[in-house]
Structures are given as C-alpha cells and as structure tokens.
C-alpha cells in the first residue's frame, strides 16, 4: 500500500521489520519502514487489544509504538532508521520488569 516517492533519496538503509529486511532511504523514520513492510499492525492497545499502525507521523498519537532494538514502547515515527535496526511489534503494554 505504501511506497517511497520515486524522486526522493534511494532506499539504501536495510532494517528488519518483524525479522524481514526492508530497504528505506537514509533519514526515514522507523514508522516509514513499518508502513513499507506492509504489516497489518505494529502494536495492539494494552486494554482492548485493538490493532494499530502509525497514524500521525508526528509524535502525538502513540499508535506507532514498537519495540526497536530491544527497547519496548518507542514511538517509531520519532526514531530515524539506522542500518540493521530491528523493529518489532509491541504486544499490548510493555513489560516493565523482565
């Protein structure tokens, strides 16, 4: 459903969304990688378990929460991709104590 606009920078950075490699341009956000990967949801809400994908892309809605490089509940739209970054689904509320 989502593709990077052709005129922008080439997709050169490889990240892993739920384990699958995705190429995104340098400077893109982890949320962009999530959308490009075509997942049906990146998180489920803690109370009702309702599925969510990145929405506002500007840090206010928290619908893009993901586990990024092992850290839970990060706002994917506020995180710039880095080579090899691992972006995984956030299942409900995070564990506080593991």
């Amino acid at each position: 459903m989502f593709r990077a606009r052709p005129e922008v920078r080439p997709a050169t950075v490889e990240v892993f969304v739920e384990g699958s490699p995705v190429l995104v341009p340098e400077g893109a956000t982890a949320a962009a990688a999530v959308l490009l990967a075509g997942l049906p949801a990146i998180r489920e809400t803690p109370v009702t378990g309702s599925p969510r994908l990145p929405l506002c892309q500007m840090g206010v809605c928290f619908d893009c929460l993901a586990e990024i490089d092992g850290i839970p509940n990060r706002q994917a739209c506020m995180v710039t991709v880095a080579p090899g970054m691992r972006i995984a689904r956030q299942h409900g509320a995070r564990e506080a104590l593991r």
Partner: peptide, 20 residues
C-alpha cells in the same frame, strides 16, 4: 507509560493503576 502489572499493592508515593 502503561506497563504490564508488576506492583501487587500501592505504596505511599508509587502506585500502578488498573490501566498499567
């Protein structure tokens, strides 16, 4: 932020709500 339930009881200055 919300987290899975850890605290089984409230403390005077720290408590986990029903929502986490």
């Amino acid at each position: 932020e919300r987290a899975r339930t850890v605290l089984p009881m409230p403390c005077t200055t720290i408590r986990q709500t029903g929502e986490g």
